[in-house]
Computed example of a mutant assay.
Amino acid sequence: MTQTPQSPAASRLFEPARLGGLELPNRLVMAPLTRNRAGADGVPGELMATHYAQRASAGLIIAEGTTPNAVGQTYPHIPGIHTPAQIAGWRRVTDAVRAAGGRMFLQLQHGGRVGHPDTSGHVPLAPSAVRFPEPLQTPAGPREAVMPRVMTEEDIRDTVADFARAARNAVEAGFAGVEVHSANGHLLHQFLAGNTNLRTDGWGGSIEQRIRFPVEVVWAVAEAVGPERVGVRISPGAHVNGVREDDTERLYPALAAALADLRPVYLHQVHADPDLPLFAELRKAWPGTLIANPRLSHEDLAADAGLRQGERLLAEGADLVALGRGFLANPDLVERLRTGAPLNRIRPEFLMHVSGPEGYNDYPVLARAQAA
């Protein structure tokens, strides 16, 4: 007998879910997306408040990577959460999202060696003296990366404390919680990866010692704001920003098991692939909520593959599904996927290192698109 195809509206992606103390209206998460729209001082402005409020129908918004201290800044116009003005700026954003019915976490991101003195005013810190392999964007344009300063024991302790302070600042700014960024070649990932962590002390070498810094950061953040307000993002096997791992299959189950003891509310896997054994291993090692972010190309987005891959990830054990570029180009992505409506095409020329509302706040919602 021929079965009737399931309509998009019947997908589990549109079922409500619970995340700690939050009730989510659906299982679609807006992934953190760096867009360089903060002020030169890292203060979020009205552009950012509008952008996130437009996307408040997501089950959860995870706001873009935000620096916990000045030395952790990656690129120009990246927001921070370590000054009173930055806290006040984010408060305007969270107020706008809350007024639109949304829920929001803030990603805490320290760039480590992904930074430049011309941008932050500081020589970047890193686990080891391994230079970033490519030019970095600065206020004056692309510049060759500088050799980072190797973190001392005092630097490590200070950075852990800065993450905890940033988490408290985020809660003060109105966020429901924070995501600790341990992915995509930034500082915590640099401690995990063998080609960027060459240390021979207690913070490098074995898997147990390479995971120590991310685990201590998560512990300090959970102590500061409560584990129910803390998530962690990882990117197993991702060769991003020059990091390389040679023991991914052993590294991440060990990290997940160590983090599980701290009881953060979720683990967020970038480019999750249910066809790879690691996805099942992480699901086995992680007792809490698992957010899966599928790998999607621009062509996939146009074909609504986010819906199909999201359903597959839920079927294989994920609890929530994070989409990035889909939300970037479609403020009303949830409704478009629910109704099977076509998706807006991304304008890649406006993704990063630009300013203004174009390619940021001017993507049409369904009513405007249909009228056009």
Rank of each mutant, 00 (worst) to 15 (best):
M1P: 10
T2F: 12
Q6M: 11
S7R: 15
E15I: 01
E15P: 00
R18E: 13
L19Y: 02
L24R: 04
M30E: 05
N36H: 13
A40G: 13
D41S: 06
D41Q: 14
G42W: 03
G42Q: 11
V43R: 03
V43K: 08
G45V: 07
L47I: 13
T50E: 13
H51F: 12
Y52S: 01
I61W: 08
A63M: 09
E64I: 12
P68Q: 04
P68G: 04
V71Q: 13
Y75S: 11
I78A: 14
I87N: 00
I87A: 07
W90P: 03
T94D: 02
R103S: 14
Q109V: 07
G112T: 05
S120Y: 07
L125D: 01
P127M: 09
R131P: 00
F132I: 01
E134T: 05
E134N: 11
L136K: 08
P139Y: 15
E144H: 10
V150K: 06
M151S: 03
E153G: 10
D155C: 01
T159H: 02
D162S: 15
R165M: 10
A170W: 11
V171P: 00
A173P: 02
G177S: 07
G185K: 02
H186I: 11
H186L: 11
H189I: 00
F191Y: 10
F191T: 04
F191N: 03
L192Y: 06
T196S: 15
N197K: 04
D201G: 06
G204I: 06
Q209D: 15
I211S: 06
F213T: 03
V215P: 01
E216W: 05
A222M: 02
A222K: 03
E223N: 14
V225Q: 09
R229T: 04
G231K: 10
V232P: 06
R233V: 14
I234E: 02
G237R: 09
N241H: 14
N241G: 00
R244L: 09
E245S: 15
T248H: 06
L262W: 05
L262E: 03
R263V: 14
P264Y: 11
H268L: 07
Q269D: 02
V270P: 00
V270H: 12
A272M: 09
L276F: 07
L278P: 01
F279P: 01
A280S: 14
E281Q: 14
W286K: 10
S297T: 15
H298D: 15
E299F: 12
D300N: 13
A302L: 14
G310P: 00
L314W: 02
A318F: 11
A322P: 09
R325G: 03
F327R: 09
L328R: 06
A329L: 07
N330E: 08
L337G: 01
G340S: 03
G340T: 08
M352G: 00
H353E: 05
H353C: 05
S355K: 08
P357M: 04
P357L: 11
N361L: 04
Y363V: 04
L366E: 13
A372M: 13
